[in-house]
Simulated assay, not measured.
Amino acid sequence: MTMHVAHLSIYPDKGAPGVGLSTATVEPDGLTGDRRKKAAVHLVCLKDTADRDDPPRANIVLDAPDDLVSLVGARVTIGTALLEVTRQAGNCPGVYAEVIEPGQVSVGDEARRV
């Protein structure tokens, strides 16, 4: 499955609008500037953000041909970061991931299952 980063966002304050980024540093606890949550990173598929009144508050939106649920249990490189997809998001689209190796992620970077 070929995937690319379509959008990056951080959510510094609970309930406040997200801040779009072109590049982000992925630290062990999540993206720099993002408030800390139950999981380090929230990833969604671009198709899951279209035509929604309340789009998911994801950190990384991937332009992927398939649903990301198939990645649960897999490791994924995005930019220079290595993530492990741990579980499906509970009440919204997408999946959650933990950071295995910190790094940089930019819009347009390829995301690959390893």
Rank of each mutant, 00 (worst) to 15 (best):
P17Q: 14
R57F: 00
V26L: 13
L46T: 11
G15N: 09
A16T: 11
L62M: 13
T2Y: 00
L46Q: 13
V76A: 05
R57D: 06
L71K: 07
Y11E: 06
T2E: 10
T77G: 04
D34E: 12
C45N: 15
L68T: 07
D13E: 15
V69G: 01
V41C: 03
A58Q: 11
V69W: 00
K37S: 01
L43T: 06
P17F: 02
R35K: 10
G73F: 01
D63A: 13
A64M: 01
C45I: 08
V26K: 12
V61L: 01
L62E: 13
D13N: 12
R36L: 06
P65M: 00
D51E: 11
D48Q: 11
D13A: 11
K14R: 12
A50G: 04
A50S: 03
A39P: 04
L21F: 06
I60Q: 04
V72L: 07
H4P: 07
T23F: 00
T49S: 04
D63P: 07
V69P: 01
G73I: 15
I60R: 02
V69M: 08
L31N: 09
M3P: 10
I60K: 06
D67W: 07
D66S: 09
T77R: 14
M3Q: 15
A24M: 10
H42S: 10
R57N: 04
T23W: 02
M3G: 05
C45H: 11
P28L: 09
G30D: 11
G18P: 14
V69S: 13
K47I: 03
H4Q: 15
D34I: 09
I10W: 03
A40N: 12
P65G: 07
E27Y: 00
R52T: 10
